[in-house]
């Protein structure tokens, strides 16, 4: 059910990116899709009553630098977290690139409307 809500969020973003004709609205749709995918990936690694994948002092075993079995059995998945961590920073870079394109287009044509821009060019 939570996955379905994530998918609904993704579909809202896709609708916005495909149907709208304002350039900033398209950028907003792409951002909503990014949020939905990030939340979905993190949810895939969650387990009930899980703990964060950060070793605390109470989770150290007796021998040096090893963790207890209880921590191994309750920690959530660190792998999607690592992937999403890079993806979030990349999304900021790509957002800056898209906004730069929008600003240039606005300065050239004076509008954000993509059908208007197509008509002016052609």
């Amino acid at each position: 059910m939570l996955y379905a809500l994530c998918f609904l969020l993704f579909m809202i973003g896709l609708y916005c990116a495909v149907v709208k004709k304002n350039m900033v609205k398209i950028v907003i749709g792409i951002m909503i899709m990014e949020y939905a995918v990030n939340i979905f990936l993190i949810m895939l690694g969650y387990r009930f009553d899980g703990v964060a994948p950060i070793v605390g002092k109470s989770e150290l075993a007796e021998q040096i630098n090893s963790v207890t079995a209880a921590f191994v059995n309750t920690a959530v998945d660190p792998l999607p977290q690592a992937l999403v961590l890079t993806s979030i920073v990349i999304s900021l870079g790509s957002l800056a690139l898209m906004i730069a394109i929008c600003i240039r287009t606005y300065e050239r044509y004076g509008t954000f409307d993509i059908t208007e821009i197509r008509r002016l060019r052609g």
């Binding site: 990030n38 959530v76 961590l85």
Partner: peptide, 12 residues
């Protein structure tokens, strides 16, 4: 993200 036990992602 914070409730999903991912504090790194929440800060970022």
């Amino acid at each position: 993200f914070l409730f999903l036990r991912a504090p790194d992602i929440a800060i970022t």
